[in-house]
Simulated scan of single mutants.
Amino acid sequence: MWAFFLAKQRVDEQIEPLLKNFDRQLLRQQDLVDKIGFLSPAILVNEGLNGVAGTDSRRFLAFKNQTEEFHNVWRKYFVPLIANDRATTVGDVESLPRWKWREISADENNHRIWSKIGLMLVLLAGLAWATVFGVSRGSII
């Protein structure tokens, strides 16, 4: 069991830099989408709906980071048991670390959602205005 644990720990250490690089790249992509997403109504709708559903990339990263933190707490809990080849007792099970989701800031999340919805409404209003103006002048866009 100890050999398996050590092998798993080495794999985790090797994979960790790759995962951190992935997270950084995902945040850079999201920042780019936040900056130029207004150019595409499809991106605006997608980002807005993902935000409302709670499945946007920032929330995903928050979940992933909290899960990794808990994984480290979980590992620290079990390392002494494994290292000492000690059987788990009822007391150990009752004192297992518990994972609890910490929601990202509602203000930040709401601002992101409402800014995308507001931008969509502005674009729709502009399209409606252009359509009405074009029809009243006898030409459609």
Rank of each mutant, 00 (worst) to 15 (best):
D31A: 15
D31I: 09
L32K: 09
V33F: 11
D34W: 01
D34G: 04
D34T: 07
K35S: 13
K35T: 05
I36P: 01
I36E: 08
G37M: 05
G37F: 00
G37Q: 03
G37K: 02
F38I: 12
F38A: 07
S40E: 09
S40C: 12
P41V: 13
P41M: 06
A42V: 12
I43V: 11
I43E: 01
L44Q: 02
L44A: 03
V45M: 01
V45E: 13
G48E: 11
N50Q: 14
G51M: 05
V52F: 14
A53E: 14
G54P: 03
G54V: 07
G54K: 06
D56W: 01
D56I: 03
S57I: 15
R59P: 00
R59H: 07
F60E: 04
F60N: 05
L61F: 02
L61H: 03
A62Y: 00
F63P: 01
K64W: 12
N65R: 13
N65K: 14
Q66G: 15
T67W: 09
E68A: 11
E68V: 11
E69Y: 03
E69P: 00
H71V: 06
N72P: 00
V73S: 03
K76A: 15
F78Y: 12
F78I: 14
V79H: 00
A83Y: 11
D85E: 15
A87N: 03
T88R: 05
V90Y: 05
V90N: 04
V90H: 00
D92S: 12
D92Y: 06
D92V: 03
D92F: 02
D92L: 05
V93A: 14
V93D: 05
S95W: 01
S95M: 06
L96V: 02
P97A: 10
P97T: 09
P97G: 11
R98I: 12
K100Q: 10
W101Q: 06
W101Y: 15
R102N: 15
E103G: 10
E103R: 10
I104N: 07
A106K: 11
A106I: 11
A106P: 02
D107E: 12
E108M: 08
I113K: 01
W114Y: 10
W114G: 02
K116H: 10
K116Q: 04
I117S: 08
I117Y: 07
I117T: 08
I117P: 00
G118N: 10
G118T: 05
G118C: 06
L123C: 07
L123H: 02
L123W: 01
L124N: 06
L124K: 03
L124D: 09
A125T: 15
A125G: 12
A125Q: 08
A125C: 03
L127H: 06
A128C: 12
A128R: 02
